[in-house]
Structures are given as structure tokens and as C-alpha cells.
């Protein structure tokens, strides 16, 4: 970007940049690992599953069951049957208040998000008199996770990710600053940065002496005293005059 090419020495900034790169990619690895752990934990926390066998009949001919749901969890209810059966499905929260109620024919498939956890009651009333609860295929799944555990785990892992990542970012920013100072001549830099400037090495052709070859001899350079040695240095001198000025 600076037009000087790869020969520019930026060793000080390269060291900082290398440390920054290692730390940032390490933090990415921590993030991925922590996400794998958190997702795995969430799968492990998949809650209980109830079926039609878990329902009991109360004196009012209502089939009821209870299921525990954690805070921010969800309740998935599926009711199916071979022939459509009309039922009334009610979900009550732990205080006995109606959370949801559906009166319709099967199949019923509902996903309810619960902000407040607790023991929820699911009631089924058979509106269709000819049908029985045994005709139904019921599946109630409480999925959820304990918010406190997830929060603690997340804070721990994300703290590591942020800590390592931010340290890496600081190294990278320092490297950018250092590189800028390395690429500027010391006379335009403030005194406290001037010492870090690395002068680029001279172009390679100044050090290179090609083998003497009569095919490339073009005579002595203009304006110079011809000596017997010039014959051997002709090609290098020619290169210097053509390309040496670029740097």
C-alpha cells in the first residue's frame, strides 16, 4: 500500500501484529467452543415429555395433567387422532389462571412460550361425546433451560472471549500505529516515535555484480573516465543508471 514493496522492514509492528492475530483467532476458537458447550447444554436441558397416559380424570370429566416449565421455556402441545375429534384444550399457569385455550378439532399443534416458569396444568375436555381420551395421541413437551445457569455460563465464556479478543485487538491497533511510524521518515515524526523508523534496505542491484560478459558490454558510461575496469562493470553500471533511481 505504501509503494515500497516487501523489502520494507516492519519487524517491530509485525511482532505486535502476530501476537494480535494469535490472540484474536484464539478468542474466536474460545467463542466457537463456548457456543458448542452452550448449545450442547441446552440440548441436555430439553425437558420432560408427557403422553395421554399421564392424564387423569377429575370429577368434572376434565382430563388433566401437570408439567414443569422453567423460566423462558416453551411448551409444545400436539394432539392428534385417526378421526378428527373436537376437544377443548386449556393451559393454566401455576396460579390457576388460563394461559391459553383452544376449542377445535384435532389435529392441534401449539407452541407456547412461557416467560414465567412453574407447574403448568393442561386440561382436555372431550366436546365430542362419542370420543374418548384413549382415541387421542397426545404429546406435551416442555423445552427450556434454566436462565441462571445459562447466564453464568455465558458470562464466563463470553468474558474469556471478550478478554482475549480485546487484548488481541489492542495488540493489532498498536501494530497499526507502530507500522505507520515505521513507514515514515524520522524527520516528520514526533521525537518519541522517530526511533522506531526502519530505513528500507538499498535495492538489490547495488549489491549485485553480474559476471563479465562481452555480449552485454555497452561501453563506458557517459561522463565518466574510462578505465580498463569499466569493461567488467559495464552491465551493472547500465542497470544502475536505468533502474537505480526508482528507490
Amino acid at each position: 500500500m505504501d509503494g515500497r514493496g516487501a523489502d520494507v522492514k516492519t519487524s517491530g509492528s509485525a511482532g505486535l501484529a502476530r501476537t494480535g492475530a494469535v490472540l484474536i483467532w484464539l478468542s474466536v476458537a474460545v467463542l466457537l467452543l463456548s457456543m458448542i458447550v452452550l448449545f450442547s447444554y441446552m440440548f441436555l436441558r430439553t425437558g420432560t415429555t408427557l403422553t395421554v397416559d399421564d392424564f387423569s380424570r377429575d370429577p368434572d370429566d376434565i382430563w388433566t395433567t401437570t408439567i414443569d416449565v422453567v423460566d423462558m421455556g416453551s411448551l409444545s402441545i400436539t394432539v392428534d387422532s385417526e378421526e378428527p375429534v373436537e376437544i377443548e384444550l386449556t393451559v393454566l399457569d401455576s396460579r390457576g389462571r388460563v394461559e391459553r385455550t383452544y376449542a377445535q378439532k384435532t389435529p392441534i399443534e401449539k407452541e407456547i412460550l412461557m416467560m414465567d416458569g412453574g407447574r403448568y396444568t393442561v386440561e382436555i375436555v372431550m366436546i365430542d361425546d362419542e370420543a374418548d381420551i384413549s382415541d387421542l395421541e397426545v404429546e406435551i413437551v416442555s423445552t427450556g433451560l434454566e436462565a441462571i445457569n445459562i447466564c453464568l455460563g455465558s458470562i464466563c465464556f463470553l468474558g474469556m472471549f471478550a478478554g482475549i479478543g480485546l487484548t488481541g485487538l489492542i495488540f493489532t491497533i498498536l501494530s497499526i500505529s507502530r507500522r505507520n511510524s515505521e513507514l515514515r521518515p524520522p524527520e516528520i515524526l514526533p521525537p518519541w516515535l522517530a526511533g522506531s523508523y526502519r530505513y528500507p534496505p538499498p535495492p538489490a542491484q547495488y549489491h549485485y555484480m553480474p559476471p563479465p560478459s562481452p555480449y552485454y558490454y555497452e561501453g563506458p558510461p557517459v561522463g565518466r573516465q574510462h578505465t580498463p575496469l569499466d569493461g567488467d562493470w559495464g552491465r551493472a553500471d547500465h542497470w544502475n543508471r536505468r533502474g537505480g533511481g526508482e528507490w
Partner: peptide
Amino acid sequence: EVDASLRLIVISLAPV
């Protein structure tokens, strides 16, 4: 043409 520092800086900042 990109020097080692700049290459490493880009490699660092890409995931960020």
C-alpha cells in the same frame, strides 16, 4: 507487495 505487518493486521481484523 503487502508487508508482513499489514497481512497479519488484515488476518486479525477479518474475524473482528
